[in-house]
Design a protein around this nucleic acid. Sequence first.
RNA 1: GCUCCCUUCGUCUAGAGGCCUAGGACAUAGCCCUCUCAAGGCUGUAACACGGGUUCGAAUCCCGUAGGGAGCGCCA
Length: 478
Amino acid sequence: MIIPDSTAPARTAGPPVTRFAPSPTGDVHLGNARTALFNLLLARRGGGRFLLRIEDTDTVRSRENYRERQLEDLRWLGLEWDAGPGREDERGPYRQSERTALYERYFDQLAAAGAVYPCFCSPLELEVSRKAQLASGRPPRYAGTCRELSAEQQAARRAQGISPTLRFRVPPGERVEFIDLVRGPQSALTDDIGDFIVRRADGAAAFFFSNAVDDACMGVTQVLRGEDHLANTPRQLLVLRSLGLAPPEYGHVSLLLDGAGAPLSKRHGAASVRDYRAQGYLASAILNHLFRLGHSTAEHGLLGLEEMARAFDPAHLGRAPAHFDESQLRGWQKEAVRHLTPDEARRWLRDVLPAGLDERPASAFLEAVLPNVELPADARAWVEVVFGGPPELDTAASGFIRDAGSGYFAAAVRGAEASGNDLRAIAGAIRTATGRKGAALYMPLRAALTGRAEGPELAPLLKAIPAGQVRERLARFA
RNA sequence: GCUCCCUUCGUCUAGAGGCCUAGGACAUAGCCCUCUCAAGGCUGUAACACGGGUUCGAAUCCCGUAGGGAGCGCCA
């Protein structure tokens, strides 16, 4: 028997409904963020809705504070959901821990159809069985111990106080087929799938079940998710079919790898959105990099969410795993910093700007320095140079100053006193006194003012340095 | 172990049998611009994992090999 192509029906006629469904067991990492982004984009480009659903059925691992952190990270990225936590609607609630009544109804329905059966096997028994199968070179699958238990046998086990799990009875000898949004036609044999648990002993719904049921009940039309779900999709299709629910279209994007080729999701710490945020990376830099990871587009510059939505094309999702590349991220970061408005820049750097700095000097500073800043740490160094005392000279700077001589700086001081912080005036005074031009004219100035041989353009930099400081820095070499 | 997925420049990718002398972006190198750095402009280096087929013709189709990944959980 063949399960009809799940992509054909009229369900796809309306606007798309997509979702991101994290479980609150850790911080959002780059792989998750990309999945969320793709789903949001898919919805937006079709004028549809993007849902956020919290998959917190595992009460042991789920943590309230992770949930809050995840919401915060998503919001920080700008990935706002149309419905979900804090934005409930008639399809909710959007936390699986609050959907148990709904699950119960569907469990009953499955039971009535004979599609599930109680399983009394203990975790230990199951593990032993798995190991034995593996050892003898067979795939580890549920042995079917409780599959054909009689009512009496079931009653006996219950009498022993064993609370059973609920297993889905996978029909033998079928081929499950579906069309993957990114990988094309897929098929699997049900004989390769063991009976799986849809309800745990504690009564909680298991992933294969709750995830699929919720997608169907929430009207989700397309699911873009990690490739790790590809091989399990047939189970969800089976569950949905037994329930008479329409499955969404599934598309499986490849996993994100780190530079060493290891899956990002298996790493800890460094790959989380929070960490990059803490380092000072901008949301738009991260988004733009993720947008191109495993996805190709003709658009080249820094894109906003709207533009990404227009340019997003699921047909251009790659099948091969993509490597997250820090140097690419830095490239986007550079772009993102250049696109910052003055207000955004000030907010971005509020922790490194001197406390209580007025708006005018702050603007002057940012205008001068921002083109040379990638991360807040870079700006911090320039804060020192601009607002600190006379800077220490590095060797290159000392060389320029020695070469210029005291007459040069005497002229510079005169120029500064006459004009304030005007580069043209200062340079003019020096030129008149020394006849210097080009690098010979400007580099000693830069060296005396900043202590180094490279940095932002001098004219705006001069405007940013307090006037008294300019004279003082020049005068010490006169 | 079994099943499934994947493999084009350093990285992300375009490519659906002739348009490929394999294109673009980022990174990188050189030059120009320039007070330096950055930006910008120009130019360059750089890839179809391997082996067999099929075909007049293959990056594109088939088979195999190698390598990577996933799934087979009372995790999601």
